[in-house]
Computed example of a mutant assay.
Amino acid sequence: MKKVLLVVFAALLLMVGAACSNDDEASGADGDSIALLMADLGNPFFHVLRDAVVERGEELGYEVLVYDGQNDASRQPSQVEDALQKGVSAIIINPADESSSANALKEAIDKGIPVVTVDRAVDVDGVLSYLVTDNLKGGELVGKWLEGQLPDGGKVIHMEGVMGTAPQRERGGGFLSVIDPNENSESKFEIIGTAVGDFSMAPAEAAMSDLLARHDEIDAVFAQNDTMAVGIARAIETAGRQDEGIIIIGFDGAKEAYDLIEKGEMNVTAVQDFDFIGSEAVNFVDEYLKNGTEPEDFVLVDVYMSDSK
């Protein structure tokens, strides 16, 4: 009889434990989960940001739920809704654009869930903090670096990212403020072509192939991220023009950029510190959830030029 009672008691304990576990998972009541919404994990450099958030989150005791927007802004609103249904305690978002997720994030903010945006802003009030690379300064650094390499000027291609996003506007704006004669009367450069590569390799490669066919003389190409710079290098090689000394400049500090630099197929990249941005975003969320501490609402992170890891 005692054995029967023990078995029944043990079964009841398992049932209660399972019920409690399911309730916690559904409600997130323990405050132990963070949703990380990434714009495009197809871009290898964004893995640095993801890994930094996951690593720091786990160090502080959070489960990090990662969503991939696959470079499609229409995906992120439903991903925010999914995170809210799962009862996350905070949201860190790398927005695909500045407007598509605004309503969904407003719902989160209205519920008291802290939202931190990284790399790009969102057009919504109440965001806890916005951490971003100083893209304007980065673009200016690229322009000044190119001036140093080609003091007598030259013919330049400008490969832009996703149009309308803050990185596209600011990196391009900073670069053109130095290089474009229409914006800097002292510039000796000529912008002979501008194309849109959507921050992706294949579109940048295709656009660069077209530009190579139309221009016999190209001195330098600025790609607004390293993924596009890889596509540009591939287009130059395919066209058989890798011995012309065309300067390729990227932006990010991604592994594939350093691999190309080491091979002599790319020259330099403007480095943004996604390790710092990712871990700091988690720190902001953690301090707010535990202590109610509000960080600065806008944090700019410096950029530097690098031709070696």
Rank of each mutant, 00 (worst) to 15 (best):
K86E: 15
I93D: 03
D243W: 13
T293E: 02
D125W: 12
V54L: 01
E294G: 02
T238P: 05
T293D: 02
G245Q: 02
S100N: 03
S209F: 05
I261P: 05
E256Q: 07
I248R: 06
A257Y: 04
G231A: 15
H215S: 08
M201N: 13
E287D: 08
N283L: 11
Y304T: 06
S200R: 10
E244D: 10
A229E: 10
R56M: 07
A235H: 02
A213P: 09
E63R: 13
K309V: 08
M1H: 08
D259W: 14
A26L: 14
G245T: 01
D216C: 04
S200Y: 07
L146D: 15
E186Q: 00
N283I: 10
R171W: 14
F298R: 10
I157S: 05
G153V: 01
T194H: 03
D259V: 10
A104F: 02
R120P: 14
E58R: 15
D30A: 09
D119K: 01
K137W: 12
L260M: 11
G231C: 07
N225W: 02
V301W: 06
N184K: 15
A207V: 11
A11N: 07
L300S: 04
R241F: 06
E186D: 15
V178N: 00
V303G: 09
H215I: 13
E81V: 06
V221Y: 03
V80G: 00
G138F: 03
A102D: 01
A239H: 03
N267L: 09
V115H: 12
D24L: 15
D125F: 12
E147I: 11
T293H: 01
G245E: 00
L105E: 00
K144F: 05
S33Y: 08
L36P: 07
D302K: 06
R56G: 15
G17S: 14
A96V: 09
A220V: 14
D82I: 13
F189Q: 03
E55Q: 13
P181T: 03
I192G: 06
V282S: 03
E190M: 01
I246Y: 13
L105T: 10
F46Y: 08
E107I: 09
A257S: 07
E160V: 05
L136D: 11
T293K: 04
N103Y: 11
M208T: 06
L150F: 02
A220Q: 06
E287C: 08
E186N: 13
F46M: 10
S100C: 08
C20K: 14
K111I: 06
S187N: 01
G112P: 08
N267A: 15
Y62R: 09
G264C: 13
G126T: 05
E140C: 04
A52D: 01
A96P: 04
S200W: 07
G154I: 05
I34M: 11
S185T: 02
S74F: 06
A195Y: 04
V178L: 06
E190A: 15
A206V: 07
K155M: 09
S101A: 15
Q85D: 15
D40S: 15
K255S: 11
S279M: 09
R120K: 12
G173M: 03
D302T: 07
V271H: 00
A52Y: 01
W145S: 10
E294I: 14
G245W: 01
I157Q: 11
K144C: 07
D97V: 10
Y67D: 01
S74L: 10
Q272T: 11
P203V: 12
T165E: 03
